[in-house]
């Protein structure tokens, strides 16, 4: 993104996948960019409309089984997201949106449904629902502090060699193998609601850094930090 231009956020399919406060990730990115003087434009793309290729950061959220399957079908048919990621755009994919980025995910009855193949992951349906607060230590290479959020899913996600775990779980289920989420290139996937970027604004700043190609200055994080400390204290086992 050239330094004088507008940061373009693209929210994919809020009509299908925005069931768990996913709008919050969009709002947090907007706020943290604007407070650093970066002008922002946000586009909401409905599932009947084409996904533009020219965005800087793409967001896709969580939802129920049926809309998840519809979203995967439409994204595959549309192809716009693939072209955008191919030319180096950043993305945050959450929960149902995270699962469809892989090769396969579990449908309404647990049957395998074809994903869109943007991340080297494969998901299926687990035996029980993972519901509750999650805390995880982020991959040190990312320079993002401890991840906190709320998970609510039945998914089990296996990471392939083409991705790295986003974090290692301290409390909670995440992918189901002791890791939570994954990343590859500028694409991040996570099971976390909360929403994730409100609970871990460092992740929002990472996406902004990737998209702008510049180091970002600090901003007033007092309310983010107070909420983080309260949630971490409430969730981590007392020592």
């Amino acid at each position: 993104m050239p330094s004088d231009s507008v940061l373009r956020l693209v929210w994919i399919y809020p009509d299908l996948l925005s069931t768990y406060g996913d709008q919050g990730n969009v709002l947090v990115l907007e706020q943290r960019a604007r407070r650093r003087g970066i002008p922002v434009e946000t586009l909401h793309v409905r599932s009947a409309d084409p996904v533009p290729e020219s965005g800087d950061i793409y967001l896709i959220g969580g939802g129920e089984d049926r809309p998840q399957i519809l979203a995967a079908q439409r994204l595959r048919r549309d192809g716009g997201l693939h072209r955008a990621i191919g030319r180096g755009a950043a993305m945050l994919a959450v929960c149902a949106g995270y699962q469809i980025m892989g090769s396969v995910f579990g449908g309404e009855e647990g049957q395998p449904v074809e994903g869109i193949g943007l991340l080297d992951i494969a998901s299926g349906r687990g035996t029980g629902r993972a519901v509750g607060e999650l805390v995880a230590e982020t991959d040190p290479a990312l320079g993002v502090p401890t991840l906190t959020g709320f998970e609510n899913h039945m998914g089990v996600t296996r990471l392939g060699p083409g991705v790295r775990p986003l974090s290692r779980t301290v409390v909670g289920t995440g992918n189901g193998d002791g890791t939570e989420g994954c990343y590859a290139g500028k694409v991040i996937g996570t099971y976390l609601h909360g929403p994730a970027l409100a609970r871990t604004p460092g992740l929002a700043d990472l996406l902004l850094t990737w998209a702008t190609g510049t180091q970002l200055g600090p901003i007033d994080d007092v309310w983010f930090e107070r909420l983080r400390q309260e949630r971490l204290a409430a969730t981590l086992p007392r020592t």
Binding site: S18, Y20, P195
Partner: peptide, 9 residues
């Protein structure tokens, strides 16, 4: 509901 994410909706 123990998840407060809905506040963002």
């Amino acid at each position: 509901g123990r998840d407060t994410s809905w506040l963002w909706d």
